[in-house]
Design a protein around this nucleic acid. Structure first.
Ligand SMILES: [Zn+2]
Ligand SMILES: [Zn+2]
Ligand SMILES: [Zn+2]
Ligand SMILES: [Zn+2]
Lengths: 149, 149
DNA sequence: GATTGATATGAAAATCATTTCCATCTAGCG
DNA sequence: CGCTAGATGGAAATGATTTTCATATCAATC
């Protein structure tokens, strides 16, 4: 198995999670290209079809590491499956996600950040983190469902 | 197996999720008594030890039904496990939960509800729901960790 | 460019929460 | 008292994620 694997431009980010390997660059590139939330399995399949197979465990490891390094946002879909989305900037974001097609839009979370901070401050709790997700049906999917089963 | 199972006062709520059975009353009573978030398995064990065993599948079914009937709030812990908490009132709540001991406190969520509503309104999305959770380390658990591994 | 030790990979097996199956029970009603 | 739709529970199935461990490869050093 030498060398005929398509090289993907490894964004500098790869270095942030340890050694810079071919697989990590591939997974990261795929995540960036996805432009939305994807599951580990979906990414795995995408790479498989694309001719750049990466082991499923490696996909999981890479995505988990990216999330830990704040390079990816993570949400859980209704079945409890984890979905990952590449995050360009340093600050975390919150999204409005379509439960039908997965379309995700960052929302203005300023107010909710302030609220969370205030709660954290006035509580005696330490190291307070928050999870905020909005989910609904996007216009396209809604249109598609008018009077149809 | 006749009749020596301790009767638990079935809150009227049992009726809300179909037939009023002994098991559902038992599960609901245990959930109320828990006074915090519990997993299905934890509740199952509690009942087992308490001498009022209820099948695990039934525990799951009951908790799921209670949640669907807005009688319980649900969160996911860091491992993706679902935790349930009995909800006395009609309105949903959000909590500040201790990641160490599970202690959960309802927080004032007025501002975040308004925020979520505004986002929902200004987006074109339909049927928008939200998930909001705060998690940290409670005073007791924090104290317990000072300078200790 | 060869050596090498720390890391990373991946296929398969293991975990673990949750669901489904299905044979058996029972609440609720006439 | 029956009757039956709905409920139960133990076992088996499902499905995502993690672990295992033998093998491969990064990257620093000679
Ligand atoms: Zn959609
Ligand atoms: Zn935030
Ligand atoms: Zn605590
Ligand atoms: Zn709310």
């Amino acid at each position: 198995m030498a060398g005929d694997r398509p090289r993907v431009a490894p964004p500098q980010d790869v270095a942030l999670i340890g050694r810079s390997t071919q697989q990590r660059a591939t997974v990261l590139a795929a995540l960036v290209t996805a432009e939305g939330f994807v599951s580990a399995r979906a990414l795995y399949n995408r790479l498989l079809n694309g001719g750049s197979p990466v082991g499923l465990s490696t996909v999981y490891r890479t995505l988990t590491a990216l999330a830990a390094a704040d390079r990816a946002d993570v949400v859980r879909d209704t079945n409890g499956e984890r979905l990952f989305r590449y995050r360009p900037g340093p600050d975390h974001r919150h999204y409005l996600i379509c439960t039908e097609c997965g379309l995700s839009l960052p929302v203005d979370s300023g107010p909710v950040e302030k609220w969370a901070e205030r709660i954290a401050r006035t509580s005696e709790f330490a190291n307070v983190r928050h999870t905020v997700e909005l989910a609904g049906v996007c216009p396209d999917c809604g249109r598609r469902h008018v009077r149809a089963p």
